[in-house]
Design a protein around this nucleic acid. Sequence first.
DNA 1: CTTGCGCTAATGTCGGACGTTAAGGTTCAA
DNA 2: TTGAACCTTAACGTCCGACATTAGCGCAAG
Lengths: 246, 246
Amino acid sequence: MSLTAKPIQAHYAYQQIAEEIQAQILRGDLKPGDQLPGEAELGTMFGVTRSTVREGLRQLESDGLVHRPTPRRLEVTLPQADQLTTRAGRAMALMKVTFRELWEVTMVTEPLAARLAAQHATPAEIDQLQQLHAEMLGCEGDMDRTIALDEQFHTQIADMGKNRVLGLAREPIALLLFRGFEQIAPSAPRFYKRQIEAHSNIIGALRDADGERAEKWARMHIEDFWRGAQLAGLEDCIALSPPAVS
Amino acid sequence: MSLTAKPIQAHYAYQQIAEEIQAQILRGDLKPGDQLPGEAELGTMFGVTRSTVREGLRQLESDGLVHRPTPRRLEVTLPQADQLTTRAGRAMALMKVTFRELWEVTMVTEPLAARLAAQHATPAEIDQLQQLHAEMLGCEGDMDRTIALDEQFHTQIADMGKNRVLGLAREPIALLLFRGFEQIAPSAPRFYKRQIEAHSNIIGALRDADGERAEKWARMHIEDFWRGAQLAGLEDCIALSPPAVS
DNA sequence: CTTGCGCTAATGTCGGACGTTAAGGTTCAA
DNA sequence: TTGAACCTTAACGTCCGACATTAGCGCAAG
């Protein structure tokens, strides 16, 4: 039997403060929107100096559990999705994940997103998506803009599925994968056009609320992306770090 | 035309320090394992006081980009997976995601994990999995232990697939979903046994390196879990906060 | 009731201080 | 020579006190 021993981490004052406040948030004693006392007051409450309190607060801010709308207000807040996305994206870039890894997962997330979107999307949302698509048609050549819009297109579909878990899980992955577009496009002349067509077909399926079809087209879309990546020789290349959000 | 305005965030000294170091890490100038200068030296380098440096460092530590093996050593490190898992899990719990959302995503991640595992697993890894399974057979009744082992079983499979992206994405989700086991078991007498059987079948498929079959069994396994959740009336219940890791 | 002003207090940053202890070098013994 | 015990140094965690800046709030004026 293997001995399991978790390293006991020193209980520094600033850490304890962060943990205590965090515990109260998770327990529900402090709810998002609640305002916290000033640093000085927190100091007296916990029996430490303001410097120590500040270090603890910096950690909580970084965790996204508290937030400063203005330097004078310190309030409890939900971790923001984009913050999690940034962290996860950075981590994956640093661990040098390959496009293959990204793609394998995307092959299941995007079709799922499409199916859910077909089930839950409102006409207004689909119109918005269509508008995004139209905008994308108009900027062939502008690579950065194209990538951004592509990313947005897929994220929009995921949002339409009304599944926040999927949204959180797929976002950093998609962000990294679709950045490959840039390297693929030059190697595959007709690639761009095929991507656009696929988007059109997905929108069509969404309009008909046809989950099966939406899913199928999304799958083909991502499969096609992979063929492009293969042509560009990206398969086992490592993904680039995503653009900083924070 | 809609006015787009991204909130201008004040760049405090401590923030700039964190950002600068972070940038150097992402750029590759600082590599994991590298040791950073002491706080005092960093202070003189950046032209600020030690207090200010410390606040920036607390942020980086919380981000998982630097790490203190001991108070005297401050070294660059890769963000640890369990840290990301904790953050994501906390976030999902705080945003009160439902079991349905968790399940919908798990329905695609676990089958994928099983398929990849069938393709990449080594016999030794499968033996290890078998051992885990055996251990699970021996602790019927001990709910916490069962849940922990179940979680471990699925995580092990995901690891066997050699896809780190999938590993990162599914972990927090699975952690939250499988905690539902506890509430399901009482409502469904035969539930526990069926879960065990499914695990057996998955192991069998892995031994035969039969990706299709592994995927199919994993899907059925998760589908069955959902039936249990329905019996327990969990569908739109919100998931509980996961056990703290950090 | 809204607008403008001024005051208060909290924040960001600074400088310095102290006990504790880890890191690294030194000494000594095997 | 090598390894272990020791010692010195300096870096860390924490504290104290201070200051300029400015956000927040109350009050007066329109």
